[in-house]
Design a protein around this nucleic acid. Structure first.
Lengths: 349, 349
DNA sequence: CTGAAAGCGCTTACAG
DNA sequence: CTGAAAGCGCTTACAG
């Protein structure tokens, strides 16, 4: 206790030069040993390792990157909407799993859906020399990243495709998942299906809305604009929007909630109104405890782990020299029936 | 489409030297302007800015850090158990919020509760010159970080205090929260209360178990070792453990689940057995949808955002020169009654 | 106020 | 196989 306090400052750490002095070899030799020891006499390797251990030397990757020919920093930058959203937490993990396999570290930030914040993060990452970036973009125009790509930064977009730049992208099958959800509700007999989702400027929301609309049309159902709602702020406002929608004059008999946090608000509202056994519901994106609700929440599950891993693989393949056309990966979704999506229309809706 | 592809390699980006040439000034002057322009003639500032814009120059923070006297990289490293655990996602966000205010970026990794992995991450962060590290440690002995601290890395521990190093720490009031949970169940009439938690090597689990035991003792209840279970793997195994516990010969009338993912498994099991209105339950750590369950899940809520923000503030105060004694912050928990914790013992337990 | 020079910690041709 | 030297992109005394 307290002993270590005196060691704290100033923050000097041993350099290769000092290791060289202790080992009685040149700086070059230390560098060779630290970088694998190829073609260095065994006794010198041993002496260097001893000196490293003695001094507690740690390789300075920053300086190494600056001088090395490949310039790789072994780090990539991730920009999500919000790292505390469980969906992005899992995407993050997927990236980390792939990155870990090649010793790459992740810098991570939240854009909060603000374009300025996204650009600031990208600039900050770029200044720190990341080898690649994975972006869940919130900007209308992603061409600001062209410069970074020209400078050698490998780019991949996840969850949402970019505009004004042609780049590797991995997204969920948003329209297809929405179609599955809405078709499922129609098959259960519903004709009036409410849509609750992010504002359509968000690509995923737009795609899910498109799937909703096209599926209605395919089944000869006309769209009632009053049934489409975009809660502006999530959680609490999805709750209020749902309450308003369900207490209107001609309410829907079923709901399609197109985002995880919105779903939580919708579910909360339906339960608060005591309508959970009356109003059918399907959620886009699975959530913890969805299976324990009464009735269980039928969802269109995404595969966020795979989204993240795939995005990382796209970036790494570029770093490994792939220079072909851009790739656009679509990860399938899966409808999971748990009860809420199989309820028939109340009163024969 | 495709036009940009040709720009991609090689990854040359303009240097200060090139900016200087274009602006017709010296390298020193460019550096001064890029760093704020203090004491540089206005016309030169303008010329440099023009050259920067023309060339698309971006400051190389890595090289700057290497040369600068303060050596600050404006980045910190975070080690969590798992970035995809919603609890740590929010802790992460708390750190990010504080870091963002001072332009600091976060490197983040998951230890998966493996000591080797934790040490690897710490070494990787250190090699990349982080200014500080925030660690939710999984190691028995954290003295391996003494060297980094001696080298000037500011340290804070979050969620779990370290052993064999005296360092700034912020944790939830684990024992107090557990006490509140158990006392609450006792007040509802329960005498046989099951404990489900991580293995006690994890500090939080040990503290919550301690709170459980001490509260039983305070109320004159003897501990039944058969009621204390440590599901080894989370989720599915918490489910099975709970089923086994409840179908035993002398089952508990109430359950205390001491971790978020374990809670999910316990809740799932209680509902699967149809006992959700019979068996009382309190969970440590709040989870999404807990309020929508039937009955609502009574929880001891933590404040993960505050945990993260506080950890960051502890790190930054060290970087700002604070050199006093280590600080040990305890963040209060809050009991939220929602129904499951207020059920009386069945059959008069 | 401005610029030439030294140097941060390291890698990499180059000569021996 | 080994070492002296140049240099990655930048900052910072130092002299003018």
């Amino acid at each position: 206790m307290g002993v270590e306090t005196t060691e704290r400052r100033p923050g000097r750490r041993p350099t290769m030069r000092e290791v060289a002095a202790v080992a009685g070899v040149s700086l070059s030799t230390v560098s060779r040993v630290v970088n694998g020891g190829e073609g260095v006499r065994v006794d010198l390797v041993v002496r260097v390792h001893d000196a490293v251990a003695l001094l507690g030397y740690r390789h300075n990757l920053t300086a190494s990157t600056l001088r090395r020919a490949d310039r790789q920093s072994a780090s990539i930058g991730l920009i999500f909407e919000d790292v505390s959203n469980p969906f992005f937490g899992v995407v993050h993990r997927g990236v980390e799993d792939a990155a870990r396999e090649r010793g790459v570290l992740t810098l991570v930030g939240s854009s909060d859906e603000e374009p300025d914040r996204e650009r600031e993060l990208a600039a900050a990452f770029s200044s720190r020399g990341v080898d690649g970036m994975i972006v869940a973009t919130a900007t209308e125009d992603c061409s600001y990243l062209l410069r970074d790509r020209a400078a050698g930064v490998a780019l991949a977009f996840v969850d949402r495709p970019p505009k004004f730049i042609d780049a590797d992208t991995v997204v969920s099958d948003n329209a297809g998942g929405a179609e599955a959800a809405v078709a499922h509700l129609i098959a259960a007999g519903h004709r009036r299906i409410g849509f609750l989702g992010d504002r359509p400027e968000v690509h995923t929301a737009a795609e899910r809305l498109r799937g909703y609309r096209e599926t209605l049309a395919q089944h000869g159902l006309s769209e009632d604009l009053d049934l489409v709602r975009h809660p502006r702020f999530r959680g609490v406002d999805a709750y209020e929007t749902t309450c308003a929608l369900l207490s209107g004059s001609n309410p829907p008999t079923a709901l399609f909630a197109s985002q995880n946090l919105i779903s939580a608000g919708v579910v909360r509202a339906v339960h608060a109104l005591g309508l959970q056994h009356e109003i059918a519901m399907v959620s886009f994106d699975d959530i913890l405890l969805a299976d324990v609700l009464d009735p269980g929440l039928t969802v269109v599950a995404q595969d966020p782990l795979k989204l993240g891993r795939t995005a990382a693989e796209l970036v790494f393949s570029r770093l490994d020299g792939y220079d072909g056309p851009t790739r656009h990966v679509v990860v399938p979704t899966q409808l999971i029936e748990r009860g809420s999506g199989e309820l028939p229309p109340r009163g024969g809706g």
